[in-house]
Amino acid sequence: MSATTNRRALVIGASRGLGLVLAGELARRDWHVIATTRRNGGELQAEADASNGRLTIESLEMTSPDELAALRERLAGRRLDLLFVNAAIDRGDLPIHEVPTDMFTEVMITNALSPLRALEALRALVAPGGTVAVMSSEQGSIAGNTEPGYELYKASKAALNQLMRSYATRHAGDGQTKLLIDPGHNRTRLGGPDAPLAPEESIPAVVDVLEAQAGAPGLQFLDRDGEIVPW
Rank of each mutant, 00 (worst) to 15 (best):
L219D: 05
P183Q: 11
G140Y: 02
S141M: 08
G215N: 05
E106C: 10
E227S: 12
P148M: 10
P196C: 11
R187W: 06
H32C: 08
P196K: 15
S2K: 14
G13V: 12
Q162R: 14
L210A: 08
M62H: 03
S156I: 10
T5R: 15
Q162V: 13
P230F: 07
K178I: 08
D30T: 08
Q139Y: 01
R165W: 11
G42M: 05
E47V: 07
F84P: 01
A23Q: 02
I181N: 00
E106W: 06
G13W: 01
G184H: 02
S136Y: 00
M108N: 12
P100L: 15
A14K: 03
W231P: 02
G184V: 11
V206F: 10
A133F: 09
S64I: 09
E43D: 11
L116Y: 07
T110K: 06
L71R: 13
Q45P: 01
P95F: 11
P204C: 04
I228A: 10
A70I: 12
M103W: 05
E67N: 08
E73L: 15
P100R: 15
A124R: 08
F84T: 10
N111R: 10
A198Y: 10
G42N: 03
G77T: 07
L219G: 03
A35E: 09
A121E: 01
A133K: 02
G24C: 03
N145M: 06
R123D: 05
N111H: 11
A124H: 13
S2E: 14
T188D: 04
G192N: 07
M108V: 15
V33D: 02
N111T: 08
D194S: 09
V33P: 00
E43I: 08
A88Q: 13
P183N: 09
M62G: 06
L125M: 13
R78E: 11
A118W: 10
L179S: 00
G173Q: 09
V206M: 12
A158I: 14
A155T: 13
R187H: 04
M135C: 12
D194N: 11
A88T: 10
L179H: 00
A143R: 15
L152T: 07
R72M: 01
A168N: 02
F84N: 09
P95N: 11
R79S: 07
A133C: 12
V126T: 03
V229E: 05
L22T: 04
G13N: 03
T63Y: 08
E67A: 15
I34G: 02
G226E: 03
P199M: 04
G77P: 02
A70C: 08
S64W: 07
V107Q: 09
G192T: 11
Q220Y: 04
L160E: 01
T146V: 12
H171P: 04
T5W: 05
A69E: 12
L22S: 03
E227H: 12
